[in-house]
Computed example of a mutant assay.
Amino acid sequence: MKRDFERKLPLYMSGLIKTCAPSKNPFTDACRNKETIFIHVPKNAGRSIYRSVFNEPGRHIQLKRYYIYDRCRASRYYKFAVVRDPVDRFVSAFNGLKGSGIGNGEYDKFVNENIDHFQDVSDFVDWMALSKCNVNKVLGWLHFYPQYKWISVVGDEIAVDRVLKFEFLQDDWPSFAKERGFSEKLSFVGKGVANYQSLSDFQIKFIRRVYSKDCQLFSY
């Protein structure tokens, strides 16, 4: 569930990955047929878009993995993503995770050990603010991973062709989908509703500091 694969491997290891880890191939048949890469940033209507574009369930894969696996193909394909107000996304991620760990896997372990014992998202933010270690622990989990890192390949340079905003997706999607030849229907499966009223001004400012690069790059 953590992004170790994308974070640690350099781009020049493409040949080795194809030979030794073919299961890491991010290019599905639908992706190849449409010559399109959609980066599913968690909590940003990704499942709805995957259904609309590829008729597939959503997958959380950083853009860097596509370049690691096949740089030429990744460069050639059309690439897009959806971003969201970092505070809104943070609250939605916490609320979506809380109480969802019902098995014994890595996901369930993370939820049980790091989410469920907090009363609410306000309590969670207060714990994060206690130390840099706590912040890094949270940011290492895919639901809280900074958005720009999903759609950059080197540094913080955004490497997709189009960035849509979650807040305007319902209005912007039909024309965008028509332009790209996608289905204009979007179900917003799993759309979360964040509750800003549960956060103090200090907590909101703290989250924005943690995600300062997202706020800067995407004008939030």
Rank of each mutant, 00 (worst) to 15 (best):
M1L: 08
R3T: 13
R3S: 14
D4C: 09
D4N: 12
E6L: 03
R7E: 15
K8C: 11
L9E: 07
Y12L: 07
Y12T: 09
Y12N: 13
M13G: 07
S14H: 06
G15N: 14
L16H: 08
K18E: 04
C20P: 02
S23V: 12
C31P: 12
I37V: 07
F38L: 11
G46W: 06
S48R: 09
Y50R: 07
F54M: 08
N55Q: 13
R59P: 02
R59A: 06
H60G: 05
Q62P: 06
K64N: 08
Y78W: 13
F80P: 04
A81E: 01
R89K: 13
A93H: 00
L97D: 02
K98R: 13
S100P: 05
N104M: 09
F110P: 02
V111Y: 07
N112W: 03
D120Y: 04
D120M: 00
V121A: 01
W127I: 01
L130T: 10
S131W: 03
N134D: 03
N136H: 11
W141G: 06
L142M: 13
F144I: 00
P146D: 03
Q147S: 11
Y148F: 15
V153H: 08
V153Q: 05
D156H: 12
E157F: 10
V163H: 04
K165R: 14
F166A: 02
D171P: 05
S175K: 12
S175N: 09
F176W: 06
K178G: 05
K178W: 04
R180N: 07
R180Q: 15
K185C: 08
S187H: 11
Y196A: 10
D201T: 13
F202D: 10
F218C: 07
